[in-house]
């Protein structure tokens, strides 16, 4: 008879083999089409911004881990995803200090002080971005950012042009095919609409983001923009330019879907996505900002715990079995 030491643990004894590392790795893979396109479009400075953003985000988390004497948690790649998506939202010409200040705010204030992964009430990327946009608005003027570049398409940020020049002026400047194929000025990872959509569909199929959020988000953009445009076509642009420019698609697939700050029940997810999109169009059409994606999603992050209370009744609870 043998006397081995056996492993004793609790049921279930199976696991589907998924992990945070795999989830975050897949999110990073999904960003690649848009990121690679951005690098091709904007050249070496874009590589610099993405690399600095990704590495500094991980470094900030590592420093926080060491300072707060916690287990080193960068191995789950959550900070890497924050850094990568953050880099995608910056113009390629951002100065180095802007990037590391942004990731500091994103990782430290957006995530770590709330208790790390899973505990952040807001999307950390958006916290960092909102901080930068309110502090150094000048760097997010995409027309100024790319003033030294030569493009073979309209070198105007579509949403800013729309805001300043009106619908009739921009109508012919931005054909939809150009917008989808990334022939527009914007942040590194937000211009290539097709790449973002491919990445998003990949994540949906792999089950790493919940399809309800991006779908309702896109529906929300289309419905709200269409409503505005039908009410007054001279003042408000149609859904196409809203959908394929600015941060809309990166918002739909990579920002609004951030796990910790978004709902998990079906109806709340649909409400969340739709309302976030509606808020974006409201901000763009009526508000002061050219692109309201960041603040709109942050606002919906705020109400997420409230709407996520709408959930199906659990088995054996409630009046039908009294």
């Amino acid at each position: 008879m043998t006397n081995n030491k056996l492993t004793v643990s609790h049921a279930p004894f199976w696991h589907d083999g998924d992990s945070l590392f795999k989830m975050n790795l897949n999110i990073m893979i999904a960003t690649l089409p848009a990121v690679i396109f951005g690098i091709i479009q904007f050249g070496a400075p874009a590589v610099g911004v993405i690399a600095l953003s990704l590495s500094s985000a991980m470094l900030w988390e590592l420093i926080l881990n060491v300072v707060s004497k916690q287990k080193i948690s960068i191995g789950d790649l959550d900070a890497a995803v924050i850094g990568l998506v953050f880099g995608m939202m910056l113009p390629a010409t951002s100065p180095w200090w802007l990037v590391i200040t942004g990731t500091l705010v994103a990782v430290v204030i957006g995530k770590m002080i709330f208790g790390g992964i899973g505990a952040n009430p807001f999307n950390p990327v958006l916290i960092g971005m909102a901080f930068l946009m309110l502090s150094w608005k000048i760097f997010f003027n995409f027309d100024a950012a790319y003033v030294n570049y030569e493009f073979n398409f309209t070198a105007l940020a579509p949403l800013a042009a729309l805001k300043s020049q009106g619908v009739s002026a921009v109508a012919d400047l931005f054909p939809i095919s150009d917008l989808i194929m990334g022939k527009q000025v914007g942040a590194i990872g937000s211009t290539f609409g097709l790449g973002l959509i491919v990445g998003g569909i990949y994540l949906i199929l792999r089950g790493y983001i919940r399809w309800e959020i991006p779908v309702s988000f896109i529906v929300g953009i289309i419905v709200t923009a269409l409503a505005f445009s039908m009410a007054n076509p001279d003042t408000y642009a149609g859904p196409a330019i809203h959908l394929f420019s600015g941060y809309t698609l990166i918002g739909a697939f990579f920002l609004a879907t951030e796990n910790s700050s978004s709902p998990v029940n079906r109806l709340p997810m649909l409400i969340y996505g739709f309302c976030a999109a509606a808020m974006i169009i409201l901000m763009r059409n009526i508000g002061a900002y050219a692109d309201g994606t960041i603040l709109a999603i942050l606002l919906l992050n705020l109400v997420n715990p409230l709407i996520d209370k709408i959930r199906p009744k659990a088995l054996g609870k409630g009046a039908n079995n009294a």
Binding site: L6, V8, A11
Partner: peptide, 16 residues
């Protein structure tokens, strides 16, 4: 050593 003997099924059993 360190193998696991599960009594009952993989979802609801217990390890001895």
């Amino acid at each position: 050593d360190q193998d696991r003997i599960v009594i009952g099924g993989p979802m609801k059993g217990f390890a001895t």
